[in-house]
Design a protein around this nucleic acid. Structure first.
Length: 276
DNA sequence: CGCGCTCCCTGGCCGC
DNA sequence: TGCGGCCAGGGAGCGC
């Protein structure tokens, strides 16, 4: 479920709940996630969480004794914080792959049916060079994601603009939903080659991405609170989608029927009339 | 090197 | 009710 706005909201939820907590017990399922942790996760026992940050779609926990824990949710991962009272009666569910219990009796549960995510405990001095982090491009909400820098990245790129913007080396965290929505907002066809965008289109696209991600963080925030606190029921943010999943529905701007195609193996939704 | 395709995995949904 | 096929919000790795 997570794109950047969800991971950002989960991070905020985790900051409220797990910072300064000491881990007293660790459970790992026998199922392998995308890859196994470099350091045995049982080493988390007796460590204390000092901070939680987000890089791209990765959650990065800092722990004492110079450890970092990286969690990625893949396509289907969920993180649920369970308070002490509920932890007492908690029964491990299918696809719970990692649970850590804290000194105060509460716990954190990672559940991932498809297991495209991972959990990696590493020493802090290796964080910047981690294989999943080292090649990442700019954060879309940072100032260095701007028209001038994006123009350089798109120069000479023959691939379509939609696929290009989902490339983490160009900009991180822009997933299939938000690139579809952003291209609609900036009136750019997903079929255009990346290098064909004019300066003004590049500017519109960067602003649309920032705008939509920011709105989603605010809008998704409330549903994400449930997500972190309780059972992860689906939120209401999908109500704001204008093209994603709207194939065969009418475009809100012009009444044209929204088209669905496949690009690079992922579904694309757009309005042929509005997006040129 | 850039780019397109395939795969990792489970579950939900749809049509028969 | 059962089953096969298709689809899913991510990302790496492989050939060409």
């Amino acid at each position: 479920m997570p794109e950047l706005p969800e991971v950002e909201s989960i991070k905020i939820g985790l900051q409220k709940h797990v910072v300064n907590k000491k881990i007293t017990k660790v459970f790992c399922s026998d199922k392998k996630l995308r890859f196994n942790s470099e350091i045995d996760l049982n080493n988390l026992k007796n460590l204390e969480i000092e901070s939680v940050e987000r890089q791209a779609r990765y959650l990065v926990f800092s722990l004492n004794k110079n450890y970092n824990l990286i969690i990625h949710l893949g396509m289907s991962g969920k993180i649920v914080f369970v308070d002490a009272a509920k932890t007492k009666n908690y029964h491990t569910q299918k696809h719970d792959h990692f649970i850590c219990k804290f000194e105060d009796g509460s716990s954190l549960i990672y559940n991932d049916p498809r297991r495209f995510g991972f959990i990696d405990l590493i020493s802090a001095d290796k964080l910047a060079q981690h294989k999943m982090l080292v090649k990442l491009g700019v954060e879309p909400l940072n100032n260095d994601f701007n028209a001038a820098n994006l123009k350089k990245k798109l120069r000479g790129k023959k691939m379509n603009i939609k696929t290009a913007m989902m490339d983490n080396k160009i900009v991180v965290g822009v997933g299939n939903i938000y690139i579809n929505e952003s291209l609609f907002e900036s009136a750019i066809s997903p079929l255009r080659s990346a290098s064909s965008l004019t300066d003004s289109e590049i500017k519109k696209l960067t602003l649309a991405i920032k705008n939509i991600l920011k709105k989603a963080i605010v809008h998704g925030g409330s549903s994400i609170n449930d997500y972190v606190d309780a059972n992860g029921s689906s939120g209401s943010f999908q109500d704001t989608f204008k093209v994603y999943g709207k194939n065969n529905k009418k475009c809100l701007h012009c009444n044209e029927i929204i088209t669905k195609i496949v690009q690079n193996g992922r579904s694309t939704f757009y309005c042929k009339n509005c997006q040129k």
